[in-house]
Design a protein around this nucleic acid. Structure first.
Lengths: 342, 342
DNA sequence: CTGTTAGCGCCTTCAC
DNA sequence: GTGAAGGCGCTAACAG
């Protein structure tokens, strides 16, 4: 006969440990929390008892007393999780797995729903919050009357009194151009996505500035949407108009995949005749391309780690400042810009 | 001079509400919880007071007493979040946003880390857990001695006493073949990924069974890895060996993208000369392909919703059974298998 | 060094 | 119909 499922077993409490160790619960508490007002032998007994009962303190009781829950809310509108997962991982790293846990809520890009989730998180008494957006355009602030520290990640807040962390897209554009220039390219076209996106504008500004610094101009700059199809069409158009182009800088890896397709269709060798670059370093797109796609990585995991550290610091009362910080990005060189040595 | 940030304001408690309403905290509690042992007029006063203080009960205190926290743990090993995000969304839908919140933990595919996160979640007294894997192969059970209900999603547990929900990959293979047959295809090759994956084997079995039912055989079946590169190479090889092939069924959208590339390179028109299909319905790959890629969607959001419902039911003491349930998948038809009408 | 006491915020008997 | 008292599990004061 199967013994009753453990589902019914009452969780072991500090009282159980204390009883087994033959001490009071206060002493047991001190011993387990490493306070030094307890005799080594006693501590030994308590730790042993806790071990054999596999005791773990109830964070609810602890939090009730401390006024802290050891939880953080991650509120996202990033529907496909492309940004939020690395940020979550960075946050877990920074918090130290186990010490802090993360409530993940998806607002589905809906303001009403976001407010709802926000309330839910606050009523759970999270110690802090990270708000993740799906694009780098400023988003409406949640306001200053939130009783816990808030950090905006990826999408900055439109209120300079908030603290926001976002990738440095201006530098991203600059770094991309410098890489192309270093490879001997000089006749560069820039194919980007929706011009309404701050990411598109910021990168474009970085691109133009880096070219200007080298005394050059873009051969052409076009915007439309973040899709492979647009990458294909735009590349065909621009290569026809400007046959001597030697580099196609694309506003996203998706656009770049389209550019690679068209270059191939037209018999332009990549990278020998023309270099192609993307942004985002979305692995599924970059490493499966032929040739593999050079891209700019936004270091999102690092961004998540920093966001978590800031929240953490703010919880501890440290003033972490405000304003929008642009975090460094990273060039990832692959075969689409640099020829393999034979 | 800026007034002190609201950060310092103590959260409002039931005591505050009771004082404002001029009743005892017991009465306030009853009024707010809709117990009928309280006079309508009194209830009104209490609700009003709670409203103007924007009181929300402290879930820690409530959970401490009730033994329930209204939280669920989602423990994932799905590094890129492709599966876990739809499952999270489904779970949120099923739980009802706000009533239940989800702790998301990433085990990074590491057993040690998983154990660690598991302990953390249990010590937080989650009411239930959903374990999400990154492939459909059975994974080691977490065991039966977990004091809360556990449901395995995507990756089933290897213990039949656990409850597991996973996509029906056998039917997926069958449905794919039936779609190709319905379109008049009969000379089909199957290019799949790593044969060590249950997903590859299950789909292949479904494929063969559906073909056998139609009195047909696969022209060829090859396995290697889940990459575009393999899709390109395998397609080139098979089309050379079997020039009369009229359909390339691929084990993933990535492989299918490679197949489309090769078909194009070889001047085979898709879908007129040859149809191409993938699995997973990964939008970024399917909708950007040319032509757009027909695929099989695993209905992960639905799977997440069901998983959450099961956890929910089990929390309420309903026996939700055990074993591995294979949930229906869905055919998504696009241009790579069906010609547009001109 | 150890144990007793009080209380975190809430809910639930049980008197009144 | 209402309020006083006890306790959920834990920690921080204090006494001993």
């Amino acid at each position: 006969m199967p013994r009753s499922v453990s589902r019914s077993q009452r969780p072991v409490t500090l009282t159980d440990v204390a009883r087994l160790a033959g001490v009071s619960i206060a002493t047991a508490s001190k011993a387990l929390n490493g306070r030094d007002e307890v005799a080594p032998a006693t501590r030994e007994r308590v730790l042993d008892a806790a071990g054999r009962l596999s005791f773990s303190p109830n964070p609810l009781a602890r939090g009730l007393l401390a006024g802290r829950t050891g939880t953080v809310g991650l509120l996202t509108s990033d529907l496909d999780g492309r940004f939020v997962i690395p940020i979550l991982m960075g946050a877990e790293d920074a918090f130290g797995a186990g010490k802090v846990n993360v409530f993940l809520c998806d607002a589905r890009g809906d303001t009403i729903r976001e407010q709802h989730q926000l309330r839910a998180l606050l009523s759970r008494r999270v110690d802090g919050m990270i708000i993740v957006g799906s694009q780098t355009d400023p988003r409406p602030s949640l306001g200053q009357d939130i009783p816990v520290p808030v950090v905006y990640a990826y999408a900055p807040s439109d209120d300079p009194d908030d603290l926001s962390l976002t990738p440095d897209n201006f530098s991203a554009g600059r770094i991309a151009v410098e890489h192309l220039l270093a490879g001997g390219r000089s006749r560069i076209v820039h194919i980007s996505g929706d011009p309404a996106y701050a990411a598109a504008q910021d990168r474009a500004a970085g691109v133009r500035q880096a070219l200007a610094a080298a005394g050059l101009d873009l051969v052409a700059e076009v915007f439309s949407e973040w899709s492979e199809g647009w990458g294909r069409d735009a590349t065909a158009l621009l290569l026809a108009q400007h046959p001597d182009v030697d580099a196609v800088l694309c506003g996203s890896d998706q656009i770049a995949r389209g550019a690679l397709d068209t270059a191939r269709d037209l018999g332009r060798a990549v990278p020998d005749d023309v270099a192609v670059m993307g942004f985002d370093n979305w692995e599924v797109l970059t490493t499966n391309a032929r040739p593999q796609l050079t891209s700019i990585d936004a270091n999102l995991q690092h961004l998540g780690r920093v966001a978590a550290q800031r929240v953490f610091a703010a919880i501890d009362g440290v003033d972490t400042g405000s304003g929008t910080y642009r975090l460094p990005v990273r060039l990832v060189i692959r075969g689409s810009t640099v020829a393999r040595r034979e």
